[in-house]
Design a protein around this nucleic acid. Structure first.
Lengths: 216, 216
DNA sequence: ATATACTTGCTAGACGACAAGCAAGTCATC
DNA sequence: GATGACTTGCTTGTCGTCTAGCAAGTATAT
């Protein structure tokens, strides 16, 4: 009868901690985030994150792992949808780029975490097999779809990297470089405009590469 | 006769500290770098950085300031050279993109510092007037050179942001995303290949935009 | 010329503020 | 009442800052 002060639910608590940690690690970075802060943000005491995840490093690993699996699933879904559509290659590419752009817009934490990870020399994880696999799959799909050279550092890889760069970079620097060069990224309309430009640029690139013979 | 244990030279010491701090802040980030580490790297005691720069935050500011002035000078030089060349717009653009790419390759510390700064919400500096000015100047130059819409978020701004993204992003993610999608960035040849791709893509973009009427 | 006053580069010890991890404790739920 | 969820107290270590002090130079006076 007595209203329980706080209902006990380890699964829920674990997830709350993971959510809080993801946000804080993404926003402030690993070093600048304390376990007390994570606990407070998750609505538990300062010892609870350590209780469930053992150490700060392992909590961080758990955050990254969850992010990666989510991303992998999303990419998987997107890829299957694109391959099954049966549209012309350019239409498929256009849709894929657009989807990728939207996906990143919806995952600011993921973007920031990966960005920080890239800045941490040699990273926390020895190498990210999950991510690499996703990248390779995307590379193969792109090469097949457009009939490009699928070899490492070949045309398909270069184009894929450019697509990622064009979608990714403006989000990371939405508050710094983008406005500095005259591009706002703060409204849905501005984002849509940016997305259209990216899609166009990629398509022009594919056209150009097909039209003019690539230099000897 | 007696070899001076350590010649006393405040200017030299200040610069040594600044060099060490730049490297460490760029590589490890602000939080993960201690003043003791800076002192050790600079060949002085752990108290000396604080003695010369007052506080850790001010030392960081000094590092950023020096970086910015160096970059501004480099951009200035490049812009004047490009404008004075009298070549066709496309050739000028090609050279500018190529130069920018090379410049970033030569300034890994700068790239990492700015990247970290972008991740620090609201940044350390209220807004970077120097950087914004550089961006605006580049925007105007690009719009004039190619006859594009110079308004904020217009074609010129979008293209400029794309150029920056294409040059910048692969360097930051040379160890993570680039290899994951099949692009190596570790040898001069690989860098040259990447640069050529970027230049081509930008030129194709300009061509495409000129050839096909941009969508209504 | 030499001694003395004074400045300045630089070091090292001390102190306070956290933070991470551990251990003991408390409380709910089966 | 036992297991597991969760908290709180404590230890240990590190970092930034402050400050006292040494050493090396410079200026001034004799």
């Amino acid at each position: 009868m007595t209203a329980p002060e706080r209902e006990r639910n380890p699964a829920r608590t674990r997830e709350a901690i993971l959510d809080a940690a993801e946000r804080l690690f993404a926003e402030q970075g690993y070093e600048a985030t304390s376990l007390s802060q994570v606990g407070q943000e998750a609505g538990v005491s300062r010892g609870t994150p350590g209780y469930f995840y053992g150490s700060k490093a392992e909590l961080y690993r758990a955050v990254l792992e969850r992010c990666f699996t989510e991303v992998r699933q999303a990419v998987q879904v997107g890829r299957e949808r694109a391959l099954a559509s049966g549209e012309a290659p350019e239409i498929v590419l256009e849709g894929a780029v657009s989807d990728y752009f939207d996906f990143l817009v919806g995952c600011p934490n993921f973007v920031r975490l990966i960005e920080r990870e890239a800045l941490t020399a040699a990273g926390v994880l020895p190498d990210a097999p999950a991510e690499i696999q996703v990248g390779r799959e995307a590379l193969a799909a792109l090469a097949v779809e457009l009939g490009l050279d699928p070899s490492p550092s070949g045309d398909a890889a270069q184009l894929l990297l450019s697509i990622v760069a064009l979608c990714w970079f403006p989000l990371v620097h939405a508050g710094t470089i983008a406005p500095a060069v005259g591009v706002e990224m703060n409204s849905p309309a501005a984002l849509a405009q940016r997305k259209r430009h990216v899609v166009d640029l990629v398509l022009y690139g594919v056209h150009g590469r097909a039209a003019m013979a690539p230099r000897a």
